[in-house]
């Protein structure tokens, strides 16, 4: 039996809310699984679906986008643009064989270090039983 591989989650967090929540989790010494790798962007509105597809294609077991709560975007409404793309992208990603659990958009404010822990922990726990996944490209090679 192959060795159980820890899932690797690519997180794309906005600078002003979720990235700060992750910093707050740190200063509060809140513990969560070491499965996520955070890429910082200024706003969740910057998240290009190409980044998500690229992450899955490059082997990410999950992609987590984190932005400010509705109404709280540092840039007023970038998070809504992110939400619009997410609604369509999650359907496409699902059609392409990615389980729902692997792709999430979460609103986590700068004060919600604890919520960050909850989300990451939950995501890791839900992805782990799904096992590793592959791209069609890898199957062929």
């Amino acid at each position: 039996m192959p060795e159980a591989v820890e899932p690797k989650i690519l997180a794309i967090f906005c600078n002003w809310c979720t990235y700060l929540a992750a910093d707050l989790a740190g200063t509060s010494r809140i513990k969560y699984p070491a499965n996520i790798r955070v890429v910082r962007v200024m706003c969740s509105g910057r998240v290009d679906p190409q980044f998500v597809m690229d992450a899955f294609a490059k082997g990410a077991d999950g992609v987590l986008i984190g932005g400010c709560h509705p109404g709280d975007c540092h840039y007023q409404e970038g998070n809504y643009k992110c939400l619009r793309r997410f609604e369509l992208l999650r359907r496409m990603v699902k059609e392409m064989g990615i389980e729902d659990e692997r792709f999430r958009l979460e609103w986590i404010s700068a004060s919600e270090g604890d919520r960050l822990r909850t989300v990451v922990t939950d995501m890791v726990e839900k992805i782990r039983p799904l096992g590793p996944r592959q791209t069609l490209t890898e199957v062929t090679q």
Binding site: A57, Q134, T135, L136, V139
Partner: peptide, 10 residues
Amino acid sequence: TSLAGGKFTK
């Protein structure tokens, strides 16, 4: 020629 190349499989 997309980044994924096609459907993802287990």
